[in-house]
Design a protein around this nucleic acid. Structure first.
Lengths: 319, 319
DNA sequence: GCGAGCGATGCGACAAGCGAATGTCTAGCA
DNA sequence: TGCTAGACATTCGCTTGTCGCATCGCTCGC
């Protein structure tokens, strides 16, 4: 998972030795270095001895009557020792950033409707709180996103389920149960209705849907109500669907997440859900794989955004 | 003696841990990494645990049923761990070069006459054997060179002494005792002499010298022979002196080291030295300070070159 | 359902590394 | 010349870390 290394014999040196070495080089004295490090002189003496033995290149310091002085070997070692401590500092810094969600990356995906309100709101809050995190976003359908999650290309995916949830290798964090709306044209008999309507009252309407067969789509809800809706027009895009509705060509179901972005010349009626909610929205992460701090923070932002999504949108009452 | 560091808290990690970490990251398995490192799986497991604890940033690997996989923190650590091992490799490589006299630097100085033959010959041999060593050269008089040695600006100095040797803080490596020649014009009565001549036989000649007073110069030898030479012309440069000699304006003393570079139209007669040699040439290093490998090698080259300097030059017999 | 593979952990043994005390060497001073 | 102070090296006893071995828990594939 990482490129191959040179793989040669390399001395087993402690990074502590190297820091002591630099401190001694700086002060020109074992005793002074020991004082600044809070150790005894004997400890420093042995640290340097150990380092000299490990590197096998003779003494690093000339021991003078008053203090020590770098030998040629010691002078050569200094920049490399500094590079080591530099790298360790860098690692410590970057890991701290990661822990404090001030750095690192977050790769997430979401299904299309989630991008209408839920994801953008969560994203705005997250970016405001954690501007240092590099974000990459993908759009896709639930099975595709879960595959990407499984293969390690995504850290988190916002997915939706109509029926059973695919619990297998995923950790699902429930965000919200999505209620349904039915969009009707302005002149429709139910356009002025107050409060939720039973779906059965639209059993004789023409329906606009993304698929001619209701099974597996939002129109499952109609089947559960005991009627098979007549799909007069098969239209995929939300804007197109609502255009058909606005033109009086039929009615269509709108999930709660898309309710806020519906045009003004159609009426949205909350659908009375009897039994199971139309679909649930989850944030999915890979099971058994530790969540990156940024993913945990983003999950929190998603929960907050989900709590702000109205259960009954325009024309209905808030739950 | 080194620039000040950032000086912040830095984890005490072993470089062994980091190498184990990289090996595990590479193989995606504790067991496989343990095999390649010749350790047991439990050792690797605890090494990683130690590293994770020392960095304090949560796990570096997700433990999966089949092997392990880098977490976000682990992914962040990889380049820094590689930088550390890189720096260690660089240090090991450069120290090896130093040990094998294939790198590093050598700063030496020499007095002017040594540059006529001794130093160039030693230098040629040294450069041929150790082309990787960066050489810097200084010219100066003996006291100045010794000061530079003492202050750490030089690693080695080629110095000469007429009388007592300043043993104080220096390590003196004897190179050669320098015999004297006297240069006479081609038509001089002694020009055809075979074998060394007593200096007294030139008591009545005109002398060319760098100083009007013989004390402290090569002409000390004349004083030791019981006569005070008459310095007719004060001339500093060797080529100039010999030009005066060739023109029949007088005779001059030539130290052995400069004998080989004397023009053909003057005769060089070895001077019979009675008692102490005119002067001795040493390679001096700082006492108590370890000699860089390159300095030791250069000292060897100087000894070889000194052995090749003829004691009796053209016109005399070899000693 | 059962064995194989993989990482975690308890145990005993050994080595590394610490502090404190002591030894050795040199420079400076009287 | 002898004494003293300062600096590094060394020894001793103890703590801490780390290893191998054996074993446990867990998951996947046959």
């Amino acid at each position: 998972m990482v490129a191959a290394p040179p793989a040669v014999g390399l001395p087993d040196v402690s990074t502590v030795w190297l820091r002591v070495f630099l401190d001694v080089a700086r002060h020109g004295s074992f005793t002074v270095a020991a004082r600044t490090l809070g150790w005894t002189q004997s400890a420093v003496s042995r640290q340097i001895s150990s380092l000299e033995a490990a590197l096998g290149g003779g003494p690093l310091f000339d021991r003078l009557p008053r203090g020590v002085r770098l030998t040629e070997a010691g002078r050569v070692l200094v920049p490399h020792a500094e590079a080591v401590t530099e790298a360790l500092h860098g690692a410590a810094r970057e890991l701290t950033e990661l822990r404090e969600v001030a750095g690192g990356r977050l790769r997430f995906g979401a299904f299309a409707t989630a991008d209408a309100a839920l994801v953008p709101q969560a994203l705005a809050a997250f970016r405001a709180r954690h501007p240092g995190v590099r974000l990459t976003r993908e759009e896709g359908i639930t099975p595709g996103l879960l595959n990407r999650l499984d293969s390690g290309h995504l850290d988190l995916a916002v997915v939706s389920t109509t029926g059973r949830t695919p619990l297998e290798p995923y950790e699902l964090h429930h965000l919200l149960d999505e209620s349904l709306y039915v969009a009707v044209p302005a002149g429709h008999p139910l356009a002025g209705a107050t409060g939720p309507v039973r779906l059965g009252r639209l059993a004789d309407d023409d329906w606009i849907s993304g698929s001619s067969r209701p099974e597996g789509t939002l129109l499952d809800a109609a089947l559960r109500q005991g009627f098979r809706p007549q799909v007069t027009h098969v239209v995929g895009e939300w804007t197109a669907k609502l255009g058909y509705v606005a033109a009086g060509l039929g009615v269509t179901l709108v999930p709660a997440l898309a309710a806020a972005s519906v045009r003004q010349d159609v009426a949205l009626l909350p659908v009375l859900d009897e039994g199971a909610p139309a679909r649930a929205v989850y944030a999915a992460t890979a099971r058994g794989r530790s969540m990156a701090p940024a993913a945990a923070a983003f999950l929190g932002a998603l929960r907050e955004a989900a709590a702000r999504i109205p259960r009954w949108g325009p024309g209905g009452t808030m739950a």
